[in-house]
Write a protein that binds this DNA or RNA. Structure first.
Lengths: 229, 229
DNA sequence: GCAAAAGTGTTTTGTCTACACCCATGA
DNA sequence: TCATGGGTGTAGACAAAACACTTTTGC
């Protein structure tokens, strides 16, 4: 299969590691897991796995994520390749990090118990194995940057959400506070939301209208000029 | 060396491929090489090589680049990991792409002859092996995006340059035209250039003042808010 | 003196920011 | 009726865009 001239070169184990973000209405959280193999067994870690011969690197990360969450059709993108010689004390492993956004309620308590996973706010990440903390830091930066120009934040919210929930999300991502009126005006002027005839009544007497992200409207825009705040 | 539980996993050849950009005063160009091994021997390709056991992936890309150009202290950053199963017909190879910016005059005719390399404008890239064209497309997008907030464009210019050369560079990167007065005002207001007492006299009778990028001034800024156009 | 590029300000337009009150409802 | 969060407009500051003429100098 492999041609002659390639054979003289070294080969490597390739891992994928997934930074999984969720949003609980107040904070961005990352899903961590207790490492199930040596070295560093029992320490907190990103969810990961090894790439297999018959799958692409992207496929491997989807496999790992599906295994852990039971979810498919998740927003995911490749983050960075971590290739230092000594990054894993168990051996030379090159890791491709991916970051994923999920709706926090889609991930059940049952699955958390099953896999021994737990959500951590980004401000309270425990010690992690290898270079996983660096991966999370980088993922957070990428999320902040990406969300400015791409409508990926919706992947962290329920399908229908109020403007206040959306604002809280952006505030959590940017770690700042935003003016309600300016935010509302800006986001509605983009013309990518559809207002539903239905209100969220839990958190106020008056109730706040639900909105949904309207993908068709978004795709009609010329993508160059879209700026979400 | 490698611990027991890792041993059951597959391992892979890892390549690095370098997208090397230069600027000739008018256009952004990419440096390509005639591929020296099978498969696809003799076809145009990015410069690449295989990662070795004892080096990090980053080091491998610096090694490949130094081999080709004789240059060290080059601007380079990791672009993306290309990991499709069938991307290389010669065997399963996962490639980490890097993009680099060099001063086009630092790369001599002699080296071009020696390695059989050639500069191609981005609008005239020939057929390339594997997924290399996709790599170049992605690198170009990254360059456009990055140059908006980071002072990396200077890596493509001589140490001293005129404002018109700098403007031509930005115009080439963004594939647009810019207003001379607005550009001058904007770039000077950033306060990251130092004006020299010396003029470039080739391209006009009057002569245009040289400027240099002043790294110290740049580092004094709070990096958050710097926007190059 | 003239051709060719360098250098320089002002006005208009649009976007971002700051800011506070009334509304609807359930208890 | 009142407490709670929901929803809305305007004015000022700032940044971006449009636009054209004078200067310098080698030939």
């Amino acid at each position: 299969m492999r041609i002659e001239s390639y054979k003289i070169h070294d080969s490597f184990l390739i891992a994928v590691d997934c930074i999984i973000f969720g949003f609980d209405g107040k904070e961005i959280k990352a899903l961590l897991v207790k490492r199930a193999l040596e070295p560093e067994l029992g320490k907190w870690s990103l969810m990961g796995g090894f790439v297999q011969k018959n799958e692409s690197v992207d496929d491997a990360s989807y496999r790992v994520l599906a295994q852990l969450t039971g979810l498919s059709s998740i927003y995911m993108e490749q983050l960075y390749c971590f290739g230092d010689v000594d990054r894993d004390p168990g051996g030379r492993v090159i890791s491709i990090a991916y970051f994923a956004l999920i709706k926090i309620d889609d991930y059940s308590e049952a699955l958390m118990k099953l896999h021994g996973t737990k959500w951590f706010s980004l401000s309270k990440i425990p010690q992690l194995v290898f270079d996983h903390k660096q991966m999370i830091r980088l993922a957070k930066e990428r999320l902040q940057q990406k969300v400015t120009n791409h409508p990926i934040g919706f992947a962290l919210l329920p399908d229908k959400f109020t403007l206040q929930q959306l604002q809280a999300l952006y505030e959590a991502i940017y770690e700042t506070t935003l003016d309600k009126r300016n935010f509302t005006r800006k986001i509605l002027s983009l013309n990518i939301l559809r207002k539903l005839n239905e209100k969220e009544k839990e958190s106020s007497r008056k109730g706040a209208f639900y909105y949904v992200f309207d993908k068709k409207k978004y795709e009609k825009l010329d993508k160059e000029g879209v700026s979400f705040l």
